[in-house]
Design a protein around this nucleic acid. Sequence first.
DNA 1: GCGTTTTAGTTCATGTATGAATTATTCACA
DNA 2: TGTGAATAATTCATACATGAACTAAAACGC
Lengths: 152, 152
Amino acid sequence: MIAFEHSLPMRLYRLLDAVMPAYRALFAEHDLTEPQWRLLRVVWERERVTAQDAAAATLLSPQSLVGIVDRLSGKGLMTRLRSVDDRRVVYLLPTAEGRALGETVLPQVLTIHEKTRATLDGAEWTVLNRLFDKIEDGLLEEPTDARDKQSG
Amino acid sequence: MIAFEHSLPMRLYRLLDAVMPAYRALFAEHDLTEPQWRLLRVVWERERVTAQDAAAATLLSPQSLVGIVDRLSGKGLMTRLRSVDDRRVVYLLPTAEGRALGETVLPQVLTIHEKTRATLDGAEWTVLNRLFDKIEDGLLEEPTDARDKQSG
DNA sequence: GCGTTTTAGTTCATGTATGAATTATTCACA
DNA sequence: TGTGAATAATTCATACATGAACTAAAACGC
């Protein structure tokens, strides 16, 4: 039997607790939360994404995205633009201020990435990523109800 | 530069998104959330824990614990007991109903653990855990003052 | 002994997360 | 050519996460 503390979920949460505070402290300096940064980054880098694509890229649910977009646009960092081709679709666009903030924060984020990265060598990161992929693939393979995957 | 999607936080979130739904579906059948289960399990297995120890064991913050205990005790699954030795301390105790629920749910949780476990072999889990430890240790070594590289 | 500092738990304000339901479009096709 | 199914975004209700502040009790310093 797997001890509670050593189950994969608990291990992942513990690792997140070790990794995330550094990011959160940085974002707080810029009056951002971590999900807000994730969204701002995607919108800033891609210049023109639909809400749906942004949700997928950030791993944020569409419901969460609504509030996050509200707050970011409230701060003047991004705007919504309703598509004219398909009026169901909403595009998210960075403002000049949003772009400026992205440019300011990104280097600091990369610094934290680097510190994290330095905890393992390249081969170890490769192994880690491969194991992650393997777990994800393994879990996808057995949902009992037949779901056909779309090509991609 | 590390691509956004390949940063450690995003990889961890993606893995959690793959792993957790199975647990959440199970807990929902028993009218529990995942944090509620974490707490119930710890309280049930240890029989007599302080709120503080429970928070540490579940990785839940003390603030979150308050509400979770409120809701679990509202459902009759556990109770608070103020210590007489040290009246600051609160013990968390399972009710008979809480114990019964623990006994019901645990085997099903272990089934999900096993499915997850089956995605990697034993050696791979060992490697994974070692890499997790290494990242955590590496991050702990420099939190305060970057100038003093020798302490640790 | 008594003020100061710690400590355990809690409250507060704000911001997600999640599942279910809704709204407004667009699409599929009989 | 309508009409029901599908889709994109949103709303709603509830629960948790986080940082800051607060309360009560205990330990500490002198």
